[in-house]
Design a protein around this nucleic acid. Sequence first.
DNA 1: GCAACCTTTGAAAACTCTCTCAACGACGGG
DNA 2: CCCGTCGTTGAGAGAGTTTTCAAAGGTTGC
Lengths: 244, 244
Amino acid sequence: MDNPSASSHLRRPDGGSVRVLVVDDEPDLTDVLSGALRYEGWEVRTAADGAGALALARDFRPDAVVLDWMLPDTDGLALLRGIRAELERVCVLFLTARDAVEDRIAGITAGGDDYVTKPFSLEEVLARLRGLLRRAGMARDAGENRLVVGDLVMDEDAREVSRAGTAIDLSRTEFELLRYLMRNPRRVLSKARILDHVWSYDFGGRAHVVELYISYLRKKVDAGRVPLIHTVRGVGYVLKPEAP
Amino acid sequence: MDNPSASSHLRRPDGGSVRVLVVDDEPDLTDVLSGALRYEGWEVRTAADGAGALALARDFRPDAVVLDWMLPDTDGLALLRGIRAELERVCVLFLTARDAVEDRIAGITAGGDDYVTKPFSLEEVLARLRGLLRRAGMARDAGENRLVVGDLVMDEDAREVSRAGTAIDLSRTEFELLRYLMRNPRRVLSKARILDHVWSYDFGGRAHVVELYISYLRKKVDAGRVPLIHTVRGVGYVLKPEAP
DNA sequence: GCAACCTTTGAAAACTCTCTCAACGACGGG
DNA sequence: CCCGTCGTTGAGAGAGTTTTCAAAGGTTGC
């Protein structure tokens, strides 16, 4: 139930939908990813192996590719080369295992591509992908990446947050939770939904962590001020300025 | 009966009726659900198992599916994938047991999909389904989800209610009762009908709670103002502005 | 390797909401 | 006008939800 309009300003220069190709051999993962990407308003195709990926690169001609670096029986580097041969200007977001050969990835991402390590959260992938597309000129407003709710401001690239001019220091999880809230202002979000978006897809725990992190955010963001974070008992949480 | 016109603005882009597939093995439940959905003006088919669901996904091509997660002899996840293979853009509303939330299916709410836990109320299912369809582009007005009766305004997504500009704080049940009344303005609703729609289907209590919650709503919504909530003695209640 | 910080879990306290009971009041038929 | 029925409201018990507190385990950086 997120707000698709929040990112609808990301469109191709010709006005059509942004096209994304997801390449991964785990169906559970491609299901969730492609669902979320479609919900962002993007057109999505999926491939489970290198051959399928190359075929879709040629026929679907995506603007971005989400590519699992560790596909079975496929050399990631060769596949990347093949995709690039077909699509010169495509953005690539790599999905890698945490202990993967980081130096090879580092060299590849030097060209403007990016990567996230498994297990990742949905918002992490979405944020990176939005960043890539924005920098590749897919944004209508080429300005900086700022989120604003009331007097609360977030600079996603700098990972800086401030309220009424005062800087706020947040941990990684706090930042991602607040980003998700700020991307969906004035919309009540259930704990299950927050968990699905902000925590890793393999997180086994329960919604209690959400409550806890909401309390952390409150101490840092709302501390002594007019609250922006509101509890909707039995439903979830909502971020909104007091006066509409 | 309820007011179908209240949601008749939900139509497919081609102007036809929205199509919904209900999949559940309990006939009592499918009967009630499909009745309510038909009354919303939607076209409905039902299936009792995975095979039937897949067949109807192919032949009926619904816009949305209401899917019991705990079908006997059927893997919910596999069924979901099968349906998605057939219908890429379908919205899915899952029905799950309350204690199944523990082993929740991560990522179910990642895309546009949603779920409600049993036992649920009819209005809960209808509201979620309307929300899914609206966000999937099935609404003629893509604007926000607002209900207006006189100077009373409800924003369903933010769960905000205000009268003449003044915000009103409502509990969950109060909110659901008021939403039902606002979806059926100028129509006398019996207590039994309200109970059937707003309270869970397994609620054992009596219609007295309706009277009680009406009195709560009056204190908050009508307090000192021209009343919108009216008693029709021996029949039920009706929400309407004073002047016709 | 150590220290600091972050994340998660568990348990208990605090709180809100829901519902039942019961008394009171209002309406309408006779 | 009186009485019975229906509707309204107050009080309180109980259940469920949220918040807080404390501590363990893990990670990161020095």
